[in-house]
């Protein structure tokens, strides 16, 4: 949603106020970074994508008419930059230190190393399954399930109909389910149920 403050900052940014645009950056940075992280699967790439996204947004801020939400516009740029990078790389190599995989929590009195390892492994499997999806399914799934953007907004971001978005989400879910064996489902259930480290998705 574009709040009144957003609109104000947006107007100022259009007028060339860098500080105003900086405020917009700080406001949308975490969610754009999260999307970039999941799109690229690489921390360094995610940082680059985020920077490129905002730089391009700033250069084209005058063309943003404000009819859509600013974040959908930013998402669109981020998706484009991510896809471009991914295609340029041709082959996506799994980062050994995949930033999507939750790091084990710091040792503490209540920490369970086994559970931490199990949790990390569960998300590693899930990340691999998501990476195995096609671009369209993966992008749509990330926007719908990880970013939890309404289908209508996803349709705006991706430039397709809501029905298409829904179909892609359903198809992506089905394929993910088929890619993850039942025994890992139990493990994933425990992993997602716990809250032992990292911030929650939203």
């Amino acid at each position: 949603m574009t709040t009144a403050d957003d609109r104000n900052s947006l107007e100022q940014a259009r007028a060339g106020d860098r500080a105003a645009f900086g405020r917009l950056v700080r406001q949308h940075l975490p969610r754009i970074h999260r999307l970039a992280l999941h799109m690229s699967g690489n921390g360094g790439d995610a940082d680059d994508i985020v920077q490129e996204t905002f730089l391009r947004a700033y250069r084209a801020i005058a063309s943003f008419d404000g009819r859509a939400d600013l974040f959908t516009w930013l998402y669109r740029i981020c998706v484009n930059v991510s896809l471009n990078l991914r295609r340029q790389r041709k082959r996506v190599t799994a980062d050994i230190n995949d930033p999507r995989i939750p790091e084990p929590a710091a040792k503490g009195p209540g920490s369970d190393p086994l559970a931490e390892a199990e949790r990390a492994e569960s998300y590693r499997v899930l990340a691999r399954a998501v990476d195995g999806l096609s671009e369209s399914l993966r992008t749509t799934l990330l926007l719908a399930c990880v970013e939890q953007i309404p289908y209508g907004n996803i349709a705006q971001v991706l430039g397709c109909s809501e029905g298409t978005v829904a179909w892609r989400v359903h198809e992506a879910r089905r394929r993910l389910r088929e890619a993850i064996p039942d025994d890992l489902i139990d493990q994933l259930e425990r992993a997602s149920g716990g809250d032992s480290g990292g911030e929650r998705g939203r």
Partner: peptide, 9 residues
């Protein structure tokens, strides 16, 4: 559920 609660770094 796992997707929606995907922990962030």
């Amino acid at each position: 559920d796992a997707l929606q609660n995907w922990p962030q770094p």
